[in-house]
């Protein structure tokens, strides 16, 4: 077996693009649930880097780590969505611009 014939720069560029899309999703979207999806995108960008470097160096450790990242992502999504439901119950909205309890004179 041989590594795939794609330059590693291109894979990195793909990962960076995914990550930036994720960041922009968190920063720009107003719906909390889409923000959580964007977080998943960022986690996957990191996973992609783990996998590609594991392949380039011929060791499987990076794949193992990406497995752990997925498990953590699952936990994060579960708790995040539970919080979302709790917030929706109390505030009746998932618009972050309306969730301003951190501001002093809310």
């Amino acid at each position: 077996m041989v590594p795939i014939g794609v330059p590693v720069e291109h894979v990195i560029a793909l990962a960076v693009a995914l990550f930036v899309i994720g960041v922009l999703g968190v920063l720009l979207r107003k719906s909390v649930i889409v923000m959580l999806m964007s977080v998943e995108l960022m986690l996957n960008a990191a996973n992609l880097l783990f996998v590609v470097f594991a392949e380039r160096w011929g060791v499987a450790r990076g794949q193992t780590i990406s497995f752990f990242v997925m498990a953590v992502a699952a936990a994060e999504a579960a708790v995040g969505l539970a919080i979302l439901i709790g917030v929706f119950r109390t505030h009746n909205t998932t618009d972050v611009d309306e969730l301003r309890d951190l501001l002093e004179q809310s």
Binding site: M1, P3, F53, E55, W57, G58, V59, Q63
Partner: peptide, 13 residues
Amino acid sequence: GPPHVNALSKDYG
């Protein structure tokens, strides 16, 4: 880090 390799082991991945 380790050098890039040109061949992967048989059971890789």
